[in-house]
Design a protein around this nucleic acid. Sequence first.
RNA 1: GCUGGAUUCGUCUAGUUGGCCCAGGACGUCAGGUUUUCAUCCUGAAAAUCGGGGGUUCGAAUCCCCCAUCCAGUACCA
Length: 505
Amino acid sequence: MNKVRVRFAPSPTGPLHIGGVRTALYNYLFAKQNGGDFLLRIEDTDQTRFVPGAEEYIIEAFQWLGIQFDEGVGIGGPFGPYKQSERKPMYKQYADYLIENGWAYYAFDTPEALDAKRKEAEAQKKTFQYDANTRGSLCNSLTLSEEEVKQRVASGAPYVVRFKYPADLDITVHDLIRGDVTINSNLLDDKVLFKSDGMPTYHLANIVDDHTMEISHVIRGEEWLPSAPLHVMLYKAFGWEAPAFAHLPLLLKPDGNGKLSKRDGDRLGFPVFPLQWTDPKSGDISSGYRESGYLPEAVINMLALLGWNPGTEQEIMDLDTLVKLFSIENISKSGAKFNLEKAKWFNHQYIQMAPMERLLPMFEAELAKHGVKAEPEFLSYVAQLMRERVHFIPEFWEQTSYFFVAPTEYDPQAVKKRWKPGTAVHLRKMMEIVESVQPFSKEQAHDLVMEYVQGNELNMGAIMNSFRIALVGAAKGPDLFEIIYAIGVTETARRVERAIQTIEP
RNA sequence: GCUGGAUUCGUCUAGUUGGCCCAGGACGUCAGGUUUUCAUCCUGAAAAUCGGGGGUUCGAAUCCCCCAUCCAGUACCA
């Protein structure tokens, strides 16, 4: 059996969509599981759609995700170049080969002429197709004399090369996920393989590259299934052995129907792209998983399970585990809707599992965004205490700001509910007790304060929450004495006074 | 329209040789518990007549047929 070689082949037309990331992930898992190679090829045959920065974005995204390519753009390798625009000179000979062997023909019809045909057909509620039925009445090397064709080509007249399907042929694509898919060639149209600008289309370039790069398995999105018959015919025409195909189900939008799109993310509050992306033309910013505070492992785990499962009830799997457990047979056939809540859960899981030394720099960066610089030891203490509450990295600030900055506002709801008349008196007393514990001890302070609360028959919930409101600004947070210990008794006293002055002057 | 693909709890899914499935797990939801509060955490519950209708069979989510719905493709885009 040939070596497993798979590829991820995006076009640099914008940021990498999360569905594309999943496709790449499945390719990667399959390659690694089989000791094969995983390559990155950039399919930039459409120069009009090229977006600057997109290629760099793709490479950076996979770096962040920890998915490594063995060969390809940005890495190199024995089958380069890996960018189709740089392979341009080699495609024409393949188109010529097809023409010489009767598998393709020159077509001179102008885009306008074809457009008119389509409109005409549409008016009759039909679809115009360039196929065995119509190619005999159009302007191409099948209808023009050999002399005329030669002349046109020699004179530099624009032309495209179209594939010539044999008539009435049942073409079967064997798909690893869906089984055999068969379609009759009469229903297919003569796809353009080579464009008038001298570039191949996806179909030609893809087949030529997959073959010359010795790709063994083509794992790609379901949107390619309809053109798979063309691809198998192309392999046949060239006399090449076709790779195995697997067409992945699509990623759907969380509400309603249809493919997940860029707009859905912004609308529903979750990223559709791995990294934040600024559109070079409009300046529009699309959020990214990285910037939204997702851990790459969580994104990978979540994505892996969107359309695949290990066949067991295991859900938390790192990349290495996924490599071991992945199997194409367990990929589902229908599209999967993205689920934000589950994504959140995954991220929470991974934040709890991550080693502290990974989390710390991220937490530190969050603080920096708010102009706070903490001592490493203090940060570490707070992180240890608070990390179980964090679902996304930016939440770290929301959950812990009061460890670093005294509250300036007090949640009115909490105050209304907990702060009773006379609270100030008791808080000052309790503060005295806390200050009397020298040196400070969480346990001792706790016991003495409790003694006071019980001795005076105070409402525990009310008084302790008032204390909390003074320190935190709201009715939330970890154990009160942990907070006192962290911010210090002096700061605690200052906050208590300030709260009293503000709430009960 | 045409062609292809898909169809199990709200969501992701298990179920692949028909019986152990009056359908299992996870997320979410709800109810309890833990906690001075919030979050976490723990326990439990509700939640799919397996898209619909016909068959085949002692027995079907699993096999056959028809229908419906959704998605994709239908470019000199990938």
